[in-house]
Computed example of a mutant assay.
Amino acid sequence: MNWKSFFMGAAVGLIGGYVVKEVIDQKTNVSPEKVLEQVKKQFKQNGPISGSWIHMEAEPYEKQQIHYRVYKGGISKNNNGSTEQFEFIADAQTGTLLVVRPLTGDLVS
C-alpha cells in the first residue's frame, strides 16, 4: 500500500466529514433572524412594536432539568403612551419561545 495515497484519502475523508457535520448543524438550527421574526409576529398581535434585538449566537440554557441551545433577545412595545420592554429566550433548534419576561415584572412562561 502506498502511504501517500492512504494519508490523502484519510485527509479527504476527515474534511468531507467535517463539511457534512457543519451542513447538518446549520439545517437543524433556526436562524436568529427567523426567530426574531416569529417573536415579533406574536407580539404584534397585541399592538405595535417600537424596537427589537436578538443575540446572534446560540448559548446553552437549562429549564426544568432540560438542556437547550437558545437565542436571547428583547422587544419594546408602546402601550397607551408608555413603553413596555420584554426579554425572551427561544429554542435555537425549533424557534419555540421558552421564556418571556417583562423587564419590570415577574417571569411569564
Results as ranks from 00 to 15, higher is better:
2 N>Y: 08
3 W>P: 14
4 K>V: 09
5 S>R: 14
5 S>L: 12
6 F>T: 12
7 F>A: 11
8 M>H: 13
8 M>A: 14
9 G>K: 07
11 A>S: 15
13 G>M: 13
14 L>T: 13
14 L>M: 14
15 I>L: 13
28 T>K: 11
29 N>L: 02
30 V>Y: 02
30 V>H: 04
34 K>A: 00
35 V>F: 01
36 L>G: 02
36 L>C: 01
47 G>T: 10
49 I>S: 06
52 S>E: 10
54 I>R: 02
54 I>A: 03
55 H>N: 00
55 H>V: 01
56 M>P: 00
58 A>E: 04
58 A>I: 00
60 P>Y: 01
61 Y>R: 05
62 E>L: 02
63 K>P: 02
63 K>A: 04
67 H>A: 14
67 H>P: 01
67 H>L: 12
67 H>M: 12
68 Y>H: 11
70 V>L: 03
70 V>H: 07
73 G>F: 02
73 G>Y: 05
74 G>I: 03
77 K>A: 12
77 K>G: 07
77 K>S: 06
79 N>S: 14
80 N>Y: 07
84 E>R: 12
84 E>P: 09
85 Q>R: 12
86 F>C: 06
87 E>C: 06
88 F>Y: 11
88 F>S: 06
89 I>M: 10
90 A>R: 08
93 Q>C: 01
95 G>W: 05
96 T>N: 13
98 L>E: 11
99 V>P: 10
101 R>L: 14
102 P>A: 09
102 P>D: 07
106 D>I: 11
107 L>W: 15
